[in-house]
């Protein structure tokens, strides 16, 4: 595919399906709300950790999935910026589908590791599921694990709405 076609056609701004005619529909407002909600949450979260890679690395390490080493530190450096760049993408509408896809994958991984750590704490300390309480390293401080899992499910559903019901109103890709 020619790069020009990619930029102006199906690629960046979503293509024909995104070029709706007429006034905005409820779906457009729903997608806009999801975009602003996700972007606000993840930009706030990312700014808590973007300039403190050692703190974020410590929080990732607590999941006992990745030990001390280059992979851990690269994740601590890059992950907050993936959140910032993808949030900006959602706000502007440029590469919106890609950022929604990234948020779906990221939140699926977050949910999996939070569940993994929750069971780790339940088995290690004998804490009941509803009482498991820890700092997930998400940028919002310590909270109950079940709340965090629910939050991540809401984030993932919001990203899914953006991804599967693409509306390109209120984006830089729209002319009307």
């Amino acid at each position: 595919m020619a790069i020009n076609e990619y930029i102006n056609g199906n690629g960046v701004f979503g293509g024909k399906e995104g070029l709706q005619e007429g006034s905005a529909r409820w779906k457009d407002y729903l997608v806009l709300a999801c975009r602003i909600f996700l972007a606000a949450v993840f930009i706030y979260a990312a700014f808590q950790k973007a300039d403190k890679p050692l703190m974020f690395a410590d929080e990732i390490r607590m999941y006992r999935v990745i030990g001390i080493g280059p992979l851990l530190y690269i994740m601590a450096i890059v992950l907050p910026w993936v959140e910032i760049i993808c949030s900006l993408s959602l706000l502007t509408g440029i590469f919106m589908r890609g950022s929604a896809f990234t948020f779906i994958v990221m939140n699926a991984i977050f949910i999996a590791v939070v569940i993994y750590r929750t069971f780790d704490i339940m088995n290690g300390e004998g804490t009941p599921f509803m009482d498991v309480y820890f700092d997930c390293g998400c940028g919002f401080g310590a909270t109950y694990a079940w709340k965090k899992i629910l939050e991540d499910i809401v984030f993932m559903l919001s990203a899914m709405i953006i991804y599967f019901a693409p509306s390109y109103r209120f984006t830089l890709g729209r002319r009307n």
């Binding site: 590469f95 950022s99 990234t102």
Partner: peptide, 20 residues
């Protein structure tokens, strides 16, 4: 398209993150 755009965004994030 979702995957291609996600890869581009990830590359931009890597470059920005390591520059910062």
């Amino acid at each position: 398209y979702g995957i291609i755009q996600a890869i581009i965004l990830t590359v931009i994030s890597f470059v920005t993150a390591f520059t910062f």
